[in-house]
Write a protein that binds this DNA or RNA. Structure first.
Length: 837
RNA sequence: GCGAGAGUGGCGGAAUUGGUAGACGCACUGGACUUAGAAUCCAGCGCCUAUGGUAUGGGGGUUCAACUCCCCCCUCUCGCACCA
């Protein structure tokens, strides 16, 4: 026996160098094997990796290595989401150029990732800030523009005063900037938009394709965000037509309650407000109200406990069916940018309208009531929005209200007073950013020709790097003449370039596809490679992207398909999604300000990469948050040292055989049979846990059990060839099963066993059903469902024998003494339950 | 309010088809080895009034048998929230 300490540092460097030099994980799409594309969300190159990255990428690496061993041609790439604000902020703070800062960070983080031994195909590495990448994005922009999926419009936009840029709706969280938590303001700006709403229906419908593959809550969040509502747009004629309008339209999901309309409420921003007020004696009061509401902070205006307020405009519309006069009010709760910016008021059927009507003493007219009940407007305390029968609704009386929705809409359509309508909560995606460190938008403004797209052959529009970043954070591009001034691609005259850059979420919306053909300088992708690799089979990342990045990528997939870049049959980019939990410390998020950050590099220095990987996977199932534990990682380290010790101490009896490499004939002793059975059962369990269920914690636990069994058996097992084979096979199995998780240690010991080829190229072991059979088993003995004893019995014992043995058991007899046995339930191989009273 | 998920020892967590609850690990306790410590090894470890009783957030139900299925309730986390 030799004593030898496990020393990860030397081993890990050795294998990492080898993987790098031999390009061990580079692959092509020319392969007979089935493909498997596993992808982890690429990082922003902030400077250093944190534990969240380690967890994310360790999960991905186990999947990649495991699938590779299970016979798949695995694409497992890595890159950098490299444009974005932090680079500019760092530039201001440290007086380095954003590009320099970004590339230095990439170099640093790449080295950190390589120290963790991840099996990436580094030949496919991308950085989105390189022209070789963003040139294709500029091309997509032009094609989308051509197709009408990009447009320019002036509208109130989310403006972050601290970041000096607009934000997409998805980037405003509770009224605050997603990056810096500043209060978002509204600002009228002309911006470029991607028409994601054109895909609203498809984005919603295709979520059903992802059921089972994506977590339910992510699907729910997307559904929610898209927010499809079906109903009708109804036109109410104005009693007195105003300039440019003779009617006001409302959107409703409840056309069945149309006869209950007793007023109408307009958003203070509604374009007709000023015209409706003409000649009204209290117009100034109304104007003041509208002004006050319009100027309210958006956050306050959307808050929970904002009291509903309104004011009568003096104007009336006419009910489309009854011709009754409907007073027009302004209301602080009506959203200008949803539906038509005006809603019909049905106090009997809508709680908000009910409260509004009570407050301002407006009439309440019951039009839908629960079957068998009579609602009385005078005594009602809340609106009835449930199902029921239509009343006070003319020809529709007596109709079920669900049927009524369609019937009323049909009649509106016949009379030209309305139409069936679908509304989305989803808004088009503002992709303009007033920032420097981003991909230039390839558009030119010419006094003669107007807005002119750059010519495709002139791409890329290079982001100039010889620019000094402004101290105030504003983009230097507008005042960089070499960039901003240009010739009009159409008339050749002097023109100005668009100086806004693209939202960085545009880059991350298609990067997964670029990996399939990352070095192509003739086209964004090779169609063959795309057809082979897409979609991504397993995507892994944080749930914080449940809407933002994942929605945008889904949209891009559909849009690029319709532009002819992606295969026609491709509907969704990511078939399966795993949202990994966060790594916490002391129950909270790690943060510099709290001083509870655990630095992966320190941990690698102390314990080695294998231990860090092992602990991240063992601590909890991947979806769940877990609390970093300093004693927990000690345990992981201890286990690997234990494997190392077992190997080195028993090296003299280890034969160079492979996992599951012993024969049934080798396991002649009870010890041998037991160990061999445990070995095969472990292969069975880890294969399922690691390759299918992604429950790495239980897979690791199973291997730990096998190692424990080996420790217990080593004294009892003999040193004959057959026993050596049984023991060696178990050792080979431990190394093979553990290799996706702790590849360095496993490769090292594998090589030391005398195997010339690396473990990474080994096939996943095959377990043998026959090896898992047991002659004698333990059966539970229950009396009235309570465990009273156990029984050692032959595995094949039949029901009658089991029943007899159970009834003869002393413990059972003690508990059935004086009782009459009514029934005996025998589950062969499991238990016997005696029912007695 | 709506939607999703969760609730099991001192802690992280197992229990995949309803069939011996607490695998595996952490922490802890005792022992061995040691001048001592570290490391390692062995043993113990849900709770209690302990040959038994009791226990998977609480209450009911189905069943020979329930962490698992059904009904009601409580708590926590996350997301959305005046979307007409």
């Amino acid at each position: 026996m030799t004593q030898e300490r496990y020393n990860p540092q030397a081993i890990e460097e050795k294998w990492q160098a080898r993987w790098r030099e031999e390009k061990s994980f580079a692959i092509t799409h020319e392969s007979d094997k089935p493909k498997y594309y596993v992808l982890e969300m690429f990082p922003y190159p902030s400077g250093n990796i944190h534990m969240g990255h380690v967890r994310n990428y360790s999960i991905g690496d186990v999947v990649a290595r495991c699938k590779r061993m299970q016979g798949f041609n695995v694409l497992h790439p890595m890159g950098w989401d490299a444009f974005g604000l932090p680079a500019e902020n760092a530039a201001i703070k440290h007086h380095v150029h954003p590009a320099q800062w970004t590339y230095a960070n990439i170099d640093n983080m790449r080295a950190q990732l390589q120290r963790l031994g991840y099996s990436y195909d580094w030949s496919r590495e991308i950085a989105t800030c390189r022209p070789e990448y963003y040139r294709w994005e500029q091309m997509f922009f032009l094609r989308l523009l051509e197709k009408g999926l990009v447009y320019r419009k002036k509208a109130p936009q989310n403006w972050c005063p601290s970041c000096h840029t607009v934000l997409a709706n998805e980037q405003v969280i509770d009224g605050l900037c997603w990056r810096c938590d500043s209060r978002v303001e509204q600002k009228d700006l002309t911006q470029w938009f991607l028409k994601i709403t054109a895909y609203g229906d498809e984005l919603l419908a295709d979520l059903s394709l992802l059921e089972g593959g994506w977590p339910d809550r992510v699907l729910a969040m997307q559904r929610n965000w898209i927010g499809k509502s079906t109903g009708a747009t109804v036109s109410f004629a104005l009693e007195k037509a105003v300039e440019g309008a003779s009617a006001i339209e409302v959107f409703t999901t409840r056309p069945d309650t149309l006869f209950g309309v007793t007023f109408m409420t307009l958003a203070p921003e509604h374009p007709l407000v000023e015209k409706l007020l003409e000649g009204y004696e209290k117009a100034d009061e109304v104007r003041a109200f509208a002004e006050r509401i319009r100027n309210m902070d958006r956050l306050d205006r959307q808050s929970d406990n904002l009291e509903k307020e309104g004011v009568f405009t003096g104007a009336y519309a006419l009910h489309p069916f009854t011709g009754q006069r409907v007073p027009l009010w302004l209301g602080n709760f009506v959203l200008a940018d949803y539906g038509t910016g005006a809603v019909m008021g049905v106090p009997s059927g809508d709680q908000r309208d009910f409260e509004f009507a009570r407050k301002y003493d407006l009439p309440i007219r019951v039009v839908v009531q629960p079957r068998g009940e009579n609602l009385d407007p005078a005594s009602m305390t809340e609106a009835w929005s449930g199902p029921g029968v239509m009343v006070n609704s003319g020809a529709f009386d007596g109709m079920d209200n669900e049927t009524g929705k369609k019937a009323v809409t049909d009649r509106l359509e016949q009379e030209g007073k309305g139409r069936s309508t679908t509304q989305f909560r989803l808004r088009d995606w503002n992709i303009s950013r007033q920032r420097f460190w981003g991909a230039p938008i390839p558009v030119i403004y010419c006094d003669q020709c107007g807005v002119v797209p750059e010519k495709e052959e002139n791409l890329p529009v290079l982001l100039p790097l010889d620019v000094k970043v402004r101290e105030d954070g504003r983009s230097p591009l507008p005042e960089t003449p070499a960039f901003a001034n240009c010739a009009c691609p159409r008339c050749g005259g002097p023109a100005r370039r668009e100086t806004d850059t693209l939202d960085t979420f545009v880059e991350s919306s298609w990067y997964f596809a670029r990996y399939t053909d990352a070095r192509d300088d003739k086209a964004p992708f090779s169609p063959d490679a795309l057809r082979y690799w897409l979609p991504v089979d397993q995507y892994i990342g944080g749930v914080e992207h449940a809407i933002l990045h994942l929605l945008y990528s889904r949209f891009f997939t559909k849009a690029l398909r319709d532009l002819g870049f992606f295969p026609q049959g491709l509907a969704e980019p990511f078939t399966n999604l795993l949202t990994q939990g966060m790594v916490l410390k002391d129950g909270g998020k790690m943060s510099k300000s709290k001083g509870n950050v655990v630095d992966p590099t320190e941990m690698i220095n102390k314990y080695g990469a294998d231990t860090v990987r092992l602990f991240c996977l063992f601590a909890a199932p991947p979806e769940r948050d877990f609390d970093w534990s300093d004693s927990g990682i000690e345990g992981a380290s201890r286990f690997l040292a234990r494997v190392w010790r077992l190997f080195t101490e028993e090296e003299d009896r280890l034969l160079p055989i492979k996992a599951c490499g012993s024969a049934a004939a080798d396991a002649t002793s009870a010890e041998g049979r037991d160990l061999r059975r445990k070995e095969h059962l472990t292969v069975k369990k880890t294969g399922e846990d690691m390759g299918a269920r992604f429950q790495f914690n239980t897979a690791i636990a199973a291997v730990m059990e096998l190692v424990n069994a080996m420790y217990l058996s080593r004294e009892k097992l003999g040193r004959g060839e057959a026993d050596k084979r049984v023991f060696s096979s178990a050792m080979a199995t431990v190394l093979t099963l553990l290799s996706p998780i702790t590849p360095h240690l496993c490769e090292e010991l594998w090589q030391r066993l005398g195997h010339p080829a690396p473990l990474a190229d080994e096939p996943w072991p095959q377990w043998d059903e026959a090896a898992t059979f047991q002659d004698m088993i333990t059966v539970a003995l229950q009396v009235n469902g309570k465990l009273r004893g156990t029984l050692e019995t032959a595995a094949g014992a039949d029901k009658a024998a089991l029943e007899q043995a159970a009834l003869a058991d002393p413990a059972v007899q003690r508990h059935t003494n004086g009782l009459t046995v009514r029934k005996v339930v025998v589950v062969p191989g499991k238990l016997v339950n005696i029912v007695a009273n």
